[in-house]
Nucleic acid binder design. Structure first.
Length: 289
DNA sequence: AACAATGTTCAGTC
DNA sequence: GGACTGAACATTGT
């Protein structure tokens, strides 16, 4: 579930609670989550160091690490953390108290299998930091390629955004989800942003008019702001209507469902219909076979 | 029991 | 290279 707001919570948790604590042991035995590293590689790279800073761009987190005492001079590698679809960061203090950030906590905290901790740093003070991830789609990687990501969705400027959102022929929703173009928007945020801006998700980006891009940019800002304020992407106004029989919270029209950009997509049949745009500017919606 | 699900990445095709 | 599809990952919820 984690999209930009949840990932920022996880980053802040690390920044507030995990920095400066000496790493004495590392469980990097999950070769899928830690790919392409082999077991022991992350342990060798991190043991004896501390995390010194936690950064984020889009949904990617990376932590700088300190020099290791008695080792080669200079800082250690960056520790890259991606929460995937269900990952959560759990930081435990020396007295065993834990704090979490990322995927919203389960109601049922008892259903917590130890093997869902996919990666763990143990600190000298007796506490730990773990990537807890039921679905195992999270990822831990040394020196992740942050440069492959587009500008963070919270920082992108209007001119940058206009450039990004009008080049090519891809569906506007697919472009919003393309992390190499703009980083941090996930499936739920994308549906919410398009709904707020009243734009059909399958509209090719080169068909967006200036006014559409302006509405989209404003919706991006307001959706991120309210998701942050209310605790995550799943708190959006239209998210509750993403179900069979759902109706638009604004006009009560039936919600439509389909696949756009390979992802499950819901939109208002009235406000986000193709016919809501000037007819002469629109191609037929791509037919699905 | 079958199917879809918040994300990424890779292989393959046109 | 752009656009698109399907598969893979593991588990939960409907």
């Amino acid at each position: 579930m984690p999209e930009l707001p949840e990932v920022e919570n996880a980053r802040r948790l690390i920044a507030n609670q995990a920095l400066g604590r000496t790493i004495v042991a590392v469980d990097d035995s999950d070769t899928f989550v830690c790919r392409p590293h082999s077991p022991g590689e992350l342990r060798a790279a991190l043991t004896g160091r501390t995390l010194t800073a936690a950064h984020r761009r889009g949904k990617a987190i990376w932590c700088e690490t300190s020099e290791v005492l008695g080792g080669p001079p200079g800082p250690g590698p960056d520790l890259g953390i991606h929460l995937g679809m269900s990952g959560r960061i759990v930081v435990t203090s020396p007295d065993g108290q834990s704090a979490e950030g990322g995927d919203p906590p389960d109601r049922d905290a008892q259903q917590r299998k130890a093997e869902w901790n996919r990666f763990t740093l143990e600190f000298a003070d007796g506490g730990r930091m773990a990537l807890f991830d039921k679905r195992r789609l999270g990822r831990i990687q040394l020196n992740p390629d942050i440069g492959a990501l587009g500008p963070d969705a919270e920082q992108v400027t209007r001119p940058e955004f206009a450039e990004l959102m009008t080049r090519g022929t891809i569906a506007v929703k697919a472009r919003l989800l393309d992390q190499s173009k703009i980083a941090g928007i996930g499936n739920l945020l994308a549906d919410e942003i398009l709904w707020q801006a009243k734009i059909p998700p399958a509209m090719p980006v080169n068909r967006l008019r200036r006014a559409d891009v302006d509405r989209l940019y404003r919706a991006l800002g307001s959706v991120l702001e309210s998701a942050k304020a209310y605790g995550g992407a799943h708190t959006g106004d239209v998210i509750a209507a993403r179900r069979p029989g759902g109706t638009c919270p604004r006009d009560g029209a039936e919600m439509r469902h389909g696949t756009v950009g390979g992802r499950s997509t819901w939109w208002c049949s009235r406000e986000q219909a193709w016919s809501a745009a000037p007819r002469e500017l629109l191609p037929e919606p791509a037919s699905r076979r």
